[in-house]
Every structure is written in structure tokens, then in C-alpha cells.
Amino acid sequence: MAKHRLGGQTIKLENPPCILSRATIVGKKEGQGPLGEYFDVVLEDSLWGEKTWEKAECRMYQEAAKMAITRAGKQPQDINYLFGGDLLNQIITANLAARSLGIPFFGLYGACSTLTESMSLGAMVISAGYADLVLCVTSSHFCTAERQYRFPLEMGTQRPPTAQWTVTGAGAFLLSNHMKPPYITHITTGKVIDYGITDTNNMGAAMAPAAAATIKAHFEDTQQGPDAYDLIVTGDLGRFGRELTIDLLKKEGYDISDRLIDCGCEIYSKDQDVHAGGSGCGCSAVVFGAYILRKMEEGVYKRILLLSTGALLSTTSCQQGESIPGIAHAVTIDMDRG
């Protein structure tokens, strides 16, 4: 077995890279939520002065990337790789943003799991000595996602209680080989899990088995339990997906109910009419970047497990009756280099 592998799905990074800098941009609704004060930029409207929502999302992506680079005192040409993606067809937001950023680019699609997917790959590249600086960026936009996956915005439809609200937001994270906490110490790559859920208005139920499987694999591979973490943070399971994950892990003998928080549950308040919570590539990116990392720097949390969760569906696959496969990738974020 390779030197740094632990068990079936986890690696322990030989040279844990750090998160050198970060930036988060969110939409108006997210800015009005309970975490509003933590975000770097809050947009005043969904268009941000652009002609289309797609252009606005692309600009959020670019600006977040540039902000993270500038904050570390670097230039775009200093960055070795850009890993990133978004929710739109052909990850067009990430592609168009990479066109103007001019950084060697790997485009990724893991639906809403793209954040930890990009951080996993970026951390491996740095730890292996192939790069000094890697930028990981993801974004989503309520209006662009709605028109691609669902109905026009002005169409009068009712959403069921399990429906989620796509977060308008972009998060950028600059990883480097510096000695500056927090560090990425472990990576557990998820398998695609499908328990046959077909309801596109219930992504939480489709993703919960994947989240539970990755958490279980992580515990088994590292031979540690929930006690090793101050917090386990999932991306966008929503209120019901979170409960399902807790139940599924209880069956496996792990009780994480006291330390599992979900970014989709944290970003909006109950009176914001988002039903089960937030979702999207931007959801875990902005909550982790703005809120969780701030709390880690303040010393509230020392070691966390971050899992972005993705529902790997397309409009065609749903209409043809295909069930919704889920995936979850986990990274351990530690203030200690280990």
C-alpha cells in the first residue's frame, strides 16, 4: 500500500498544507441571514450591475479568487494551480472566470461537493511537492441554478417542505506550504452512493447516505471516533438530511448528534422562507470560509471535519427516472500540524 494511505479511502498528508488566505462573497439574502456579518462582500442585488445572472456569478467567482490572492500578498502569476467548479452546465462559470484569471486550471464538477473535492486535490498536489500555491474556488447562484434545474423565477410554484434554496455565494481558498494554521491534515474521498431516492425536491435524503458513508470510512480509516473533532461540518444536507445522517450513523454505532452542523442549516434563519435550508457549491464555501474558519482562529474549535455533499443529478437523468446519486468528500482541518 502507498506510504501515506490509511485504510480504504483516507490519506494522511505528509506535509499538511495550510489555508493561507480566503475570501467570501454572498448575495443579499445570505447577507441578511444570521451569518451576514462574517462575509467579506454582500451583494446588493442578484445582478451586481451585470446584464445576466450568469455574468454576476462569474464575477463573484473572479472577485473572490482575486481577493484571496491579494490578501496573501500574492499575484495571480504566483499561483501554480486553480482547482474549481460550479453548478452550471459544462462548469461554465469556472471556465469563464479561469479565462480571465490566467492561472493553470483544473475544472472540477462534484455538484455541491466541489469545494472539498478541490481542496482535497489541491492539498495533495502541495503535499507532494508539485506546487507552492494552489487556489480552490467554487460558486453557486440562486437565479442561475433555478433557471437551469427548475422553473423561471416569476413562475408561481409551491415548494415542498423538503426543498432547499440555492445559496448565492462564492468562496476562494488559497492553499500553500507555509507554516500558518489552519492546516489540512487528512483527506477522505467519498464513493458515489445511491439509495434510490428520486425526489429532486429532497436532495438531503439523496445525499445523507453518502455523507454517513464518508464519515464512517473516515472514522474507521483513522481509527478515531467523533470525539477527535470539535465539530463535524456537512455542506448542504439541510434540516432533514442532517437528521437522516445522524440516524444512519447511529445505526453504525457513532453518535455525532452533538457535533454535527450543516452549512445549509446555518446560513439562513427560519423566517427567511427557505424550507429545509441552503444548498449549492457556494453554501459550504461561504459558511466554512467566513464563519467556521473565523471561529477556529478565535480558538473556539481546534479540529474539525469538513464534508461538502453533492447530489449528482442532471435535468435529463431526473426526467428519465434515474435516481439521485450522492457523494461526500471529507477533509480534516486542524489548527495543529499533527
Binding site: P160, P161, T162, Y195, G196, I197, A205, F240, E243, D247
Partner: peptide, 21 residues
């Protein structure tokens, strides 16, 4: 396993309030 999970999800998920709707 899938069947069990689907039944469990169906039981656990809140329903739309049919009377109110």
C-alpha cells in the same frame, strides 16, 4: 437496503399541509 431507506425517508419527511393548501 434501498427499499428500507426509502420507506424510512418517506415516514420521516414532513408532508405538505394538505388541508391548509
Amino acid at each position: 437496503l434501498n427499499k428500507e431507506y426509502q420507506i424510512y425517508v418517506q415516514r420521516k419527511m414532513p408532508k405538505s399541509n394538505l388541508l391548509r393548501d
